[in-house]
Write a protein that binds this DNA or RNA. Structure first.
Lengths: 217, 217
DNA sequence: GTCTATATGTAGATAGAC
DNA sequence: GTCTATCTACATATAGAC
């Protein structure tokens, strides 16, 4: 388990601080894990790009596995927080299509806004130690449950097709939403455009449909 | 580069042969690569599960990197072959929806039928040596081109939405089709059912639509 | 074709100075 | 908090017997 983040003096603006070494290590580790894979990333590489020596890492973390656990934490938190925030910001009487769209946008926002951590999470999750993975199983299954409930409500409301089991729809949907982190390029259209396009694709499909709502562009 | 497969006596039924050591090594490697990651899989593990000693692998392959290259080959070939076969089997006057559906089913069939190799391909591609990856770039871009052409034809035919660029639709689509290998369980419904469900989801989306064609179940 | 034995490199982790 | 130096383990790959 990671050390808990030390409490900072609230009177000092956080922005004035240089990046804490611990956070620096995590950011570098996330990027290297997703670029080079978990086992193929060495503590020496992480240390070098963090501007310290390899041995110094052990002052901040118990070891490589603990670093991986923290990176996984950041990645899943970015996504779940974004989804919860967007859903909570909706008016109480928002219809199901609006709610689904908000959840989709939240997932995409979390994924792309903290791309190093979310990409690292997706790519290294299966390959970290059993201990680190076990610690995350409950977090991930809570997120899964959130989607299953949302999708079931959408089925009940008559918005979603009922000919495919909700868990399978969820696996398809969340899987599809995880890919843009691989290829999204902010220079070709901003986030809002991407979110609208992906939302249209998952909700309405690739084909044209007469009287479609929410046409993009 | 791998040695070319030795020519076998055509008079001897292939099925009567015990699995050639070389093929056995590849199959074990593909499974271990996808289960444990590339860098975290050792030649000793591959050798042990192939029933030989680590040193013996070098009679069949130049090294770990060559094994990875062969696994990548098998994975992409399984998918491209299946797609080409399904498209070629269609009558010449098949409409675009039929053609798109055939390509989707072909991709899924290739992915799931040779799951160890295709899963390994997806998971290790970014992490093998530059040399092995470079060798595959052209193969992968040919496959990408096949999809872009198919999708563009579908746009021209009025079947596919034209408000999202074809390359982005392709990235979304192929990405979405790559996930089922992570969670498909043949004990819960056969391949035909899965293919019909995934096809419906990508073509028509998650939402109900009036007068939808091709309802599943 | 497969074995044993080993050369060589480098990984994660630790100890103790500063 | 960070450094240097080092321990121990195990990886890929090679050599040569059988």
């Amino acid at each position: 388990m990671p050390r808990s983040t030390p409490v900072r003096d609230a009177a000092v603006p956080a922005a004035a601080q240089p990046p804490a070494t611990r956070e620096q290590i995590l950011a570098v580790a996330a990027r290297l894990f997703s670029e080079r894979g978990y086992a193929n990333t060495t503590l020496r590489q992480i240390a070098q790009q963090s501007g310290i020596q390899a041995g110094s890492i052990y002052y901040h973390f118990d070891g490589k596995d603990t670093i991986a656990a923290c990176v996984l934490d950041e990645g899943i938190a970015a996504v779940t927080d974004a989804v919860h925030r967007r859903l909570a910001a909706l008016p109480a009487d928002a219809d199901m299509r609006t709610r689904l769209g908000a959840a989709v946008e939240g997932h995409l926002w979390g994924m792309l806004h903290r791309g190093e951590f979310t990409a690292a999470h997706i790519r290294i999750y299966r390959y970290v130690s059993d201990a680190a993975r076990a610690r995350h199983r409950s977090i991930r299954s809570a997120y899964t449950r959130l989607w299953d409930e949302l999708l079931q409500q959408a089925v009940d409301a008559g918005l979603l097709r009922s000919d495919i089991p909700v868990p399978m729809v969820r696996q398809f949907l969340v899987g599809a939403l995880n890919w843009p982190v691989d290829w999204y390029d902010p220079r070709r259209g901003g986030f809002e455009q991407l979110a609208a396009q992906i939302t249209a694709l998952v909700l309405d499909g690739l084909t044209t449909r007469p009287g479609r709502r929410g046409l993009v562009s």
